[in-house]
Write a protein that binds this DNA or RNA. Structure first.
Lengths: 363, 363
DNA sequence: TGAGCTATTGCATTCGAATGCAATATTAGG
DNA sequence: CCTAATATTGCATTCGAATGCAATAGCTCA
C-alpha cells in the first residue's frame, strides 16, 4: 500500500487534510472526477510528477512512472483537456464551419478523420444558409479553438478578425481575390468553362443555367463561369433559373423551363449535382423526355449519387479528398507556425464523361 | 479616459505593475487574448464585476454594466469558455459519435441545430466502422463533455463507464435489451416485419436479404426481423447476402444473386436504402430487368434519395427528425438532472409505398 | 570516499472565469 | 438626518494541469 505522501495542494486546509487521512485513502469523493492530485496521492508522488508522466519526454524515472501508471489505471484517470488547454493555450480543437452539410457529407467525413489522425478534434458548426455565419463566429472565439476550417463564406471583416486574433483559418472552396486568406479550392470557373466548351463543341446552342442559393459564392462563380464562356462563344440563348441546391429545386427549375415561353433549351447547366439529378428525373419521369437525346443535363461536384447508373451524370468532379487533406495540412502547419504566409491552393476539377449529356466524338 | 483601477491580480509582481503603468494603458499585449482582467482594468472595475456582467441575473448596477460593456466592445472581449468550463464543470459541449456519417447526413444536421438551439456545441467523432469506438472513448472523457449522443454501438462495459462517471449518454437507434441505457429508436424489427408481411401478402414467395456490415447491430435487427417473420410465414426460400451498407455493395449483392444457383428471388430485402438503390440500378441497367415487374426491391431508412423518382423506393421511413429531437431533449434533461431514470423511447417507422416493389391491392 | 555531474522530484505559480463572503454604497423609511 | 435594509462591489479562492526553478537523489570518476 502506498504511503500517503504529503503533497496536498499548497497549504491545504488542515481540516481537509485530516479528513483525507481519517478516511485513510485516496479514493476521490464519489461522482467527482479523478484528478492528477488523486493519482499523485495514491501513488505517493507530487502532482507535477503525474503531469510529467503524460508529457512526451517528461523527466520521470522508470520506477516512478511505473508507480504512477499503476495508480492511473487503478483510478481510471484521464487528464482533463480543458484544464490543460487553459495553461498550454492549445485546445486541440478545430472548428469546422460547413454549409450544406446534407449535400456534402463526404467532406465532413474526410475532415474528421484527417484531423483526428493528428490528435485534433472537430467542433462542428453547421449552417443551413451561409448567411448565418454571424451567429457562430463569437462562439468559435469563445471556445479557443486552435484553428478553423470553413466551408462557408465569411465577410472580409470576419476574416480580418481571425487574423488579428491569430487564429489560423483555412477555406475550402471559397476563394477571396482581394484578401490574403488561406484557401484550398477547386477551380470552379475553369471547370465550368471547360464543361460549357464541351457542350458547345458537341453542338448545343440553347442553354439554361440553374443557380444555387443567392448567398452562395460558389454558385455565383460556377454560374458566371458558364454564362461568360457562353457569351464568349457567341451564344446568347441562355436562360437563368434560380435554384436552392437541392433535388426539388432542380425539378422545379426544369418544370419552369418547360412551362416558360420558348420551350426547353438543348442543355441545362446546373450549379451542382443534386439539382442536375432533379432535372433529369423531372425530364424523364414527368415530361417523358429522353436524356441525353432530347435534353442534355450537366452538374458540378461529382457527388457519389452522380455516378449512380440511373444518372451517370456529366459533371466536374472536385478532388475533394485531396482538397481536404491539403486544407488539413495547411491548417496544421499554420497552427505550428502562425507566421507562415497566407497561401492559396487551387485544384482542377476533372470532367466526368457520363451519359447525361451529348458530348460528341470523345465518347 | 478611465482611470487605471488598482485591480491587478492579487500581489502582482511590482515589475509587471510598473510596466503596465508605464505604457499607461489597458491594451493587452499584442497577440494575447483579451481577458476579463483586461476589461476590468479598462473599465476601472474588478474582474468579478466583469464576470457578473456575463451571468444571467448577475448583480451589477446599470451604470457599471454600461461601463463594462463599453470596454467589452472596445477591446473585443469574449469570455473564455475553457476557463469557464473549468470552474463551472460545464463545457456546454456534447460529444456526438456517429457511424456511417456519409449515409445519414441529415441526422447530424438535425443534431447540430437541435443542440445549438440550447447553447450547446457538438464535438464530433465520426467512425468508419462501429468497432472503432474504443479509440475515441478516452478522448471524449478527456474533453469533459456534458453529455454524449451515440449513433454507434458501445459495449456494456463502456456504457457502464459513462454511468459511473455520471456522463449522460443517449443512443439513437441502438437498443440494449439488458442494459438500462437511454435510447431513442425506430422499431427496426417491427418495421421489417410489416414490410415483409406486405411483400408476402402481395404474393412474393422467394426472397433474398442483403445485410449491412457484420458489426452493425441495426443491420442485425433488421435482418433478423425479416428472416424470422418469413420463417413464421412458412417461407424458407431465403438467401442471405452480406453487404456493406453502400451503393456498390447493393449492386454486388444483386450480381451475386443473379450469378448464383437458383436464379433471382422474387423480392430483395435490403438492410438500408443505399443498398436497395444499388440493387435497383444493377437490376435495371446491367441485367435489363424491370423493377418491380420482374423483381421487387425494398430498403429501410427513408433517406432523401429513396424518394427520387428514378427509384421511388418501398421502404420504412424512420421519423429521424422526431427521433433526433427526442434524443436531444432526453439528453438535455439528464444533463440538468443526472438522477433521472434511464428511459427508452421507441418510434414506429412508416411504410413508404413506392413503386420499387409490388405491394398488391393497396396501390 | 568525495567532488562534480546529471537525472529526478517537488514547490509554487500560472492560465481565465466564477463565486462565497465581507465590505461598501445606495435607498427607503421614519 | 439617521438607521436599517438592500443592492453593488471587490477580495480571495477555486477549478486541474503544466512548468520554471530550486532542491535532492543518484551516479561517475578520480
Amino acid at each position: 500500500m502506498p504511503k500517503a505522501a504529503n503533497t496536498g495542494k499548497k497549504a491545504a486546509k488542515p481540516a481537509k487534510q485530516t479528513t483525507a487521512k481519517a478516511t485513510a485513502d485516496f479514493t476521490p469523493e464519489a461522482g467527482r472526477r479523478v484528478t492528477s492530485y488523486d493519482v499523485a496521492r495514491y501513488a505517493g508522488v507530487s502532482q507535477s510528477a503525474v503531469s510529467r508522466c503524460f508529457k512526451e519526454g517528461g523527466s520521470v524515472s522508470p520506477k516512478t512512472r511505473d508507480k504512477i501508471m499503476k495508480a492511473v489505471r487503478k483510478l481510471g484517470y484521464q487528464p482533463n483537456a480543458i484544464a490543460r488547454g487553459l495553461i498550454t493555450r492549445r485546445s486541440n480543437m478545430v472548428a469546422v464551419i460547413i454549409a450544406n452539410l446534407r449535400f456534402y457529407p463526404e467532406t465532413l467525413a474526410y475532415l474528421t478523420s484527417g484531423l483526428n489522425a493528428s490528435g485534433n478534434h472537430v467542433l462542428l458548426f453547421s449552417l443551413d444558409h451561409e448567411s448565418e455565419v454571424d451567429r457562430i463566429i463569437d462562439q468559435i472565439w469563445q471556445y479557443g479553438v486552435d484553428g478553423v476550417i470553413a466551408g462557408a463564406h465569411l465577410s472580409k471583416k470576419q476574416i480580418e478578425l481571425f487574423d488579428q486574433r491569430k487564429i489560423p483559418l483555412v477555406f475550402i472552396n471559397r476563394l477571396y481575390r482581394d484578401i490574403a486568406a488561406n484557401s484550398v479550392c477547386c477551380d470552379q470557373v475553369e471547370g465550368e468553362r471547360i464543361l460549357v466548351d464541351r457542350l458547345v463543341a458537341a453542338g448545343h446552342r440553347s442553354f439554361a443555367v440553374v443557380t444555387g442559393p443567392s448567398d452562395s459564392v460558389v454558385s455565383q462563380q460556377r454560374i458566371s463561369g458558364a454564362v461568360e464562356r457562353l457569351a464568349d462563344l457567341g451564344i446568347n440563348d441562355v436562360r437563368v433559373i434560380e435554384g436552392e441546391y437541392d433535388y426539388d429545386s432542380g425539378r422545379r427549375a426544369l418544370r419552369e423551363l418547360a412551362d416558360g415561353a420558348g420551350g426547353l433549351p438543348q442543355a441545362v447547366v446546373c450549379a451542382n449535382d443534386m439539382m442536375a439529378i432533379g432535372c433529369m428525373d423531372e425530364a424523364r419521369h414527368q415530361l417523358g423526355l429522353r436524356v441525353p437525346e432530347d435534353l442534355s443535363v450537366v452538374g458540378f461536384d461529382g457527388v457519389m449519387q452522380a455516378a449512380w447508373s440511373s444518372y451517370d451524370l456529366v459533371t466536374v468532379r472536385q478532388p475533394m479528398q485531396n482538397m481536404v487533406e491539403a486544407a488539413v495540412s495547411m491548417l496544421l502547419s499554420r497552427i505550428e507556425r502562425p507566421d507562415l504566409a497566407p497561401e492559396k491552393r487551387m485544384f482542377s476539377g476533372e470532367i466526368v464523361e457520363g451519359c447525361s449529356a451529348r458530348l460528341g466524338t470523345s465518347r
